[in-house]
Amino acid sequence: TLATPAVRRLAMENNIKLSEVVGSGKDGRILKEDILNYLEKQTG
């Protein structure tokens, strides 16, 4: 899974598996926005 260290840390802090997040960046890269959108969906 393609993600920057900052995105990986954000995911780890929120107990998110990067494999569950759909990346919207180039080549499927997971962006910070993708993590935040995933969190919004989870908290509903």
Rank of each mutant, 00 (worst) to 15 (best):
R29E: 15
A3F: 04
N14P: 00
E33H: 09
Y38R: 13
E40F: 07
K17T: 10
V21F: 04
K32F: 07
P5W: 09
R9V: 07
L2Q: 04
I30D: 02
N37C: 06
Q42M: 10
E33G: 10
K32I: 13
L31Q: 10
N15W: 01
V21S: 02
V22F: 05
R29T: 14
L2G: 01
L18N: 02
G23Q: 02
L31E: 12
R9T: 06
G23D: 01
E20G: 04
K17N: 13
A3N: 04
N37Q: 15
Y38V: 13
L10K: 06
L10D: 00
G25S: 04
G25P: 01
A6Q: 14
N15P: 00
I16Q: 02
G23I: 00
N37T: 14
G44P: 03
S24M: 02
M12L: 10
K26V: 09
T4C: 09
E20N: 13
K17V: 09
N15A: 07
N37M: 14
D27A: 07
A6L: 07
M12C: 03
V22Y: 09
I35T: 05
L18H: 05
S24T: 13
Q42D: 13
K41C: 12
K32S: 09
L10M: 14
T1C: 06
A3W: 06
V22E: 14
L10R: 03
Y38E: 13
I35Q: 06
G23H: 00
A3L: 04
P5Q: 14
A6I: 10
V22G: 10
D34V: 00
A6D: 12
T43G: 15
E20D: 15
A6P: 08
L10V: 07
L39I: 15
T1R: 02
L39N: 09
R8Y: 06
L2E: 10
L39C: 12
S24L: 01
V21N: 01
M12T: 08
R29V: 09
I30V: 13
L36W: 09
Q42W: 07
L18V: 05
L39A: 15
V22M: 11
G25I: 00
V21K: 02
S19D: 12
R29Q: 15
N37L: 12
E20L: 08
A3D: 06
V7H: 03
S24C: 04
D34A: 00
T4G: 04
I35P: 03
I35Y: 05
N37K: 12
P5K: 15
A3G: 06
G23Y: 00
T1Q: 04
S19T: 13
G28R: 03
P5H: 15
G25N: 02
V21L: 10
I30T: 02
T1W: 03
K26R: 13
T4K: 05
R8A: 13
E40W: 08
K32H: 01
K32Q: 10
G28F: 01
R8T: 10
K32T: 07
K41N: 12
I35V: 15
L2T: 11
R8L: 08
G28L: 00
P5I: 09
E33T: 10
N37A: 15
E20H: 11
I30P: 03
L2S: 06
A6F: 05
D27I: 00
L2P: 07
K32N: 07
L31T: 15
G25M: 01
D27R: 08
K32R: 14
V7E: 04
R8N: 07
E33V: 11
K26L: 08
G44E: 15
T43A: 13
R8C: 08
E20I: 02
V7Y: 00
R29K: 13
V7T: 04
Y38D: 07
I30F: 01
I30H: 02
Q42N: 15
I16T: 03
R8H: 10
G44H: 14
L18F: 15
R29C: 12
D34S: 00
N37H: 10
I30K: 01
A6E: 12
K32Y: 10
T43V: 13
E33F: 04
D34C: 00
S19A: 13
R8F: 06
G25H: 01
K41P: 10
S19C: 10
A3M: 09
K26G: 08
D27M: 04
